[in-house]
Amino acid sequence: MRLTWWFRKNLIRVYMVLGFTYLFIPVAYTFAFSFNNGGKSNLVWKSFTLGNWQNPCGAPDVCVALGNSIRVGVISTVLATILGTLIAFAIGRHQFKGRSTINTLIFLPMATPEVVLGASLLAMFLNLGINPGFWPVVIAHVMFCISFVVVTVKARIASLDPRLEQAAMDLYANEFETFRKVTLPLVAPGIAGAALLAFSLSFDDFIITNFNSGTLTTFPKFVYVASARGIPAQANVIGSAMFFLALFIVIAGQLVSRRKAR
């Protein structure tokens, strides 16, 4: 009787614990096997070692692939964040004709399966005689990141109280000063969030990259190709490190914004 009462009262909490366990099992597995002295395939647990962490570039090509992913990610993020933010400001703060067409154009890439995006872009590059490789991948990543940047930044702009900008104008700031001193600083967290999202989308993308990369190997592509024979533990090291790095950035970002508010 008491047990069922407790269970009913805590049903959601029990469920949440199960849900989070489910979410984290593969992450924990990946992390655990980054310490496995399991040779090339890393399929079964052999013995504990710190060697993989001490020498993450120990497996050939892992770090080359990682470097490519980071370069693609940084360039794509910068471009997509700039282009997407400009669009978000146009939509969020200005009146213009063809608004619904623009909205549809922003929405469509998100509603199109990656395989279609990747295949269509590759087909066009091949028709134009452009070889797949680094820049085609960057072009593709910018293309599918723009929509996500627009949506994220637009939401931040929409949540901005228009009276703040009116107050700035009322206090002798012209249009440009209002933008620089009030609008931009207040939208900045949204832009930073969008950039983080764009980078993680780019870094983690496999399907579109696979179509357009040619001989270029990115980190996900390396993992996919290696998965047939077993993935070196160094890949687990990099995957886990990315996990902790991103977690650190997000939590630090939240702490900073909370301190700023205080």
Binding site: D161, R163, A167, M169, L171, Y172, N174, V182
Partner: peptide, 15 residues
């Protein structure tokens, strides 16, 4: 911003 007029906004609109 060209007017010698200032406003105390509803809900204040402090930055």
């Amino acid at each position: 911003y060209q007017r010698p007029v200032n406003t105390v906004f509803q809900n204040y609109a402090l930055f």
